[in-house]
């Protein structure tokens, strides 16, 4: 369970071009459910995701992960919480170019000091699970859109996170691949993972695997979907 209490995020605070991207959001997101943040571009979805995912700190308000307050944690602990709890799937996939798909998947686990052989085994098992094991040694830039996203998903899963966060995951995918992505989300759900997606793609928020759709506008919650 993730609880947001009166979250505000102001960019460039105190400056003339200050901008309130998230404006007083209070939410309780259920564990083991698929939640979609929906809303027009610029409504603050990405910002909210980055706050939930411990990538940035809110200007005001508190975030509770289970019963743990994370807003006041020092950076080191925050990073640790982030890499053990969250798996991120970015809009641009954000694979590291020039290194193989396999290495990309293993990358988040490197600093944890896991033994190489077992890490590699897990990474290959994940690639296999998503049907891209044959491409394991291809460089990231040689992967097709679908392969790149699957690689990015494998990478998000390598540290076995409880919560998966995806920002506009279908923006660069065609209909078929978008449907496949939602099937994968269904699998996450079956595995008892919490999934939070920001998207304004009807294929996503209209999908039957989605438990809840929250609509945002101008940094505020327009409809909490309950």
């Amino acid at each position: 369970m993730i609880e947001l209490r009166d979250i505000r995020k102001v960019f460039n605070e105190g400056k003339p071009h200050a901008l309130t991207a998230v404006d007083g959001v209070s939410l309780v997101l259920d564990a083991r459910a698929v939640t979609v943040l929906q809303g027009p571009s610029g409504s603050g979805k990405t910002t909210l995701l980055s706050l939930v995912g411990c990538m940035a700190r809110p200007t005001e308000g508190r975030i509770l992960l289970g019963d743990r307050e994370i807003t006041s944690l020092p950076e080191r602990f925050l990073t640790d919480v982030r890499r053990r709890t969250f798996g991120f799937i970015f809009q641009q996939f954000n694979l590291v170019k020039g290194i193989s798909a396999l290495e990309n998947v293993m990358l988040p686990a490197y600093p944890l000091g896991e033994h190489h052989a077992s890490l590699k085994k897990r990474a290959r098992a994940l690639l296999d699970l998503f049907g891209i094991l044959p491409r394991e040694s291809s460089k990231a830039e040689w992967l097709s859109g679908g392969e790149a996203q699957r690689t990015a998903i494998c990478r998000a899963l390598i540290n076995d996170p409880q919560i998966i966060i995806a920002d506009e995951p279908t923006a660069h995918l065609d209909t078929k691949l978008s449907r496949e992505f939602m099937d994968i989300v269904g699998r996450f759900k079956a595995e008892q993972k919490t999934v939070i997606i920001a998207s304004h793609d009807p294929l996503v928020y209209g999908s039957p695997v989605v438990d809840r759709v929250i609509t945002m506008r101008d940094g505020k919650i327009e409809a909490a979907g309950r």
Binding site: G98, M106, Y110, P111, L112, E114, H116
Partner: peptide, 22 residues
């Protein structure tokens, strides 16, 4: 938190991979 030596080696792996790129 994991093995110190493995952490160094993993990071060296990546460093070398990225050096090899250029």
């Amino acid at each position: 938190m994991g093995n110190w030596f493995e952490r160094q080696r993993n990071i060296i792996d990546f460093t070398l991979s990225s050096l090899v790129r250029r």
